[in-house]
């Protein structure tokens, strides 16, 4: 009993290890209000920095633990102008954590509104599934989307859908290679280095090429993904809601551009 008591007190003073209000829309809104009132003067109205750090990119926000950020807010940052917020209760601090994480972390925004079931149907009917794998179904030409919502913010996903050619992920850029023996190979540039190229062709096989065999490499403009036929805003919202549910953490595809 004597040994247990101080431990118990210690646990209480640290609050919860994980944010109980994570991805909670009301908490994010409340956190934003608190932020504008107390923090924006130094960190900027959009949290992108001013006199103090850009919190949409700061390491303690984008990385770090929930509890670590809680403590920085509650206790301040010693040696800087960042004051402690001792008069905010735990919920108030967690609301700030929810808001800041929603800005800095792709997977931490509140659930996107919309009819995810209708979005799933759209994903199939509009042919998205012919190139993108979700839940084990789909084609290989585009990136798998099981964990898209933990990798990209909804605004980015929206932009990717409406203008696929604006930003194309590495590994999915189109390329046309002409070899010295007269072949023309078109496909996706999966990887390349100073000496070699690996091009995935539409039939699912790889053309493995070495620079000395190659006459020219043309990096083609635009995305292999076609611009979609017009969506109604409701359809788009439903599709975004469906993609927002794709949070499978077991998809972690990484392209080895650095010879990983």
């Amino acid at each position: 009993m004597i040994r247990a008591l101080p431990l118990l007190l210690f646990a209480v003073s640290l609050a919860a290890a994980e944010n109980p209000l994570a991805r909670d829309a009301a908490a994010v809104a409340a956190g934003r209000a608190t932020f504008l009132e107390r923090c924006a003067v130094c960190h900027g109205q959009d949290a992108k920095g001013g006199q103090a750090a850009n919190l949409t990119r700061a390491r303690a926000v984008a990385g770090g633990t929930d509890q670590g950020l809680f403590r920085i807010i509650r206790e301040g940052f010693p040696g800087t102008a960042m004051p402690p917020q001792t008069d905010l209760n735990d919920d108030g601090v967690w609301q700030l954590v929810s808001y800041l994480h929603s800005l800095a972390r792709p997977g931490e925004q509140p659930p996107v509104e919309g009819d995810a079931t209708a979005g799933a149907k759209l994903f199939r009917d509009r042919g998205c599934i012919s190139c993108h794998i979700v839940d084990g179904q789909g084609g290989f030409w585009g990136p798998g989307l099981d964990s898209i919502a933990s990798r990209k913010r909804t605004e980015e996903i929206r932009a990717d859908i409406l203008d696929p050619g604006a930003v194309v992920d590495e590994g999915y850029r189109r390329v046309a290679v002409r070899t010295k023996d007269g072949r023309r190979i078109e496909g996706l540039l999966k990887n390349e280095d100073t000496f070699s190229l690996q091009v995935l062709t539409r039939d699912g096989s790889y053309a493995l090429l070495e620079r000395p065999q190659i006459a020219s490499v043309e990096k083609l403009e635009g995305s292999p993904m076609p611009k979609p036929a017009a969506f109604t805003s409701e359809e788009l919202q439903n599709l975004l809601a469906f993609l927002d549910r794709q949070r499978d953490p077991y998809l972690s595809f990484e392209r080895g551009f650095n010879n990983y």
Partner: peptide, 18 residues
């Protein structure tokens, strides 16, 4: 898991299990 170019050893993709 890795997929590797069998002529050069260049990694084509890598899968990291979380």
């Amino acid at each position: 898991a890795y997929a590797i170019d069998g002529r050069t050893g260049r990694t084509v993709w890598r899968y990291d299990y979380p």
